[in-house]
Simulated scan of single mutants.
Amino acid sequence: MAKDIEVGGDGSEFRAKDYHDPAPSPLIDAEELTKWSFYRAIIAEFIATLLFLYITVLTVIGYKSQTDPAKNADACGGVGILGIAWAFGGMIFILVYCTAGISGGHINPAVTFGLFLARKVSLVRAVLYMAAQCLGAICGCGLVKAFQKAYYNRYGGGANELADGYSKGTGLGAEIIGTFVLVYTVFSATDPKRNARDSHVPVLAPLPIGFAVFMVHLATIPVTGTGINPARSFGAAVIYNQDKAWDDQWIFWVGPLIGAAIAAFYHQYILRASAAKALGSFRSNSNI
Rank of each mutant, 00 (worst) to 15 (best):
Met1Cys: 12
Ile5Trp: 13
Gly8Ser: 15
Asp10Glu: 10
Glu13His: 14
Ala16Glu: 12
Asp18Trp: 08
His20Trp: 06
Ser25Met: 09
Asp29Met: 04
Ala30Glu: 13
Lys35Ser: 10
Trp36Gln: 11
Ala41Trp: 02
Ile42Phe: 07
Ile43Ala: 15
Val57Ala: 08
Leu58Met: 11
Val60Lys: 00
Gln66Thr: 09
Gln66Val: 00
Thr67Asn: 02
Thr67Ser: 07
Asp68Cys: 07
Asp68Thr: 07
Ala70Tyr: 14
Cys76Glu: 09
Val79Ser: 10
Gly80Met: 07
Gly83Ser: 05
Gly83Pro: 01
Ala85Gly: 10
His106Thr: 08
His106Phe: 15
Ile107Lys: 06
Ile107Trp: 00
Pro109Val: 12
Thr112His: 07
Leu115Ala: 09
Ala118Gly: 09
Val121Glu: 03
Leu123Asp: 04
Leu123Phe: 12
Ala126Pro: 08
Leu128Ile: 14
Gly142Val: 15
Leu143Glu: 02
Lys145Arg: 14
Tyr152Ala: 03
Tyr152Ser: 00
Asn153His: 06
Asn153Met: 09
Asn160Met: 08
Leu162Asp: 00
Ala163His: 12
Asp164Gly: 13
Tyr166Trp: 14
Lys168Asp: 14
Lys168His: 12
Lys168Pro: 03
Gly169His: 06
Thr170Phe: 13
Leu172Glu: 03
Leu172Trp: 02
Glu175Lys: 04
Glu175Ser: 10
Thr179Gln: 08
Val181Asp: 03
Val186Gln: 02
Ser188Lys: 07
Ser188Trp: 07
Arg194Trp: 04
Asn195Ile: 04
Ser199Cys: 10
Ser199Ile: 06
Pro202Val: 03
Ala205Ser: 11
Leu207Arg: 01
Ile209Asp: 04
Met215Phe: 15
Val216Lys: 09
Val216Gln: 05
His217Glu: 02
Leu218Pro: 06
Val223His: 02
Gly227Met: 03
Pro230Phe: 06
Arg232Trp: 00
Asp243Lys: 15
Asp248Val: 06
Gln249Val: 00
Gln249Cys: 00
Ile251Val: 14
Val254His: 05
Val254Trp: 11
Ala260Cys: 13
Tyr266Gly: 03
Ala273Gln: 12
Ser274Phe: 13
Lys277Tyr: 13
Ala278Thr: 11
Phe282Asn: 11
Ser284Met: 09
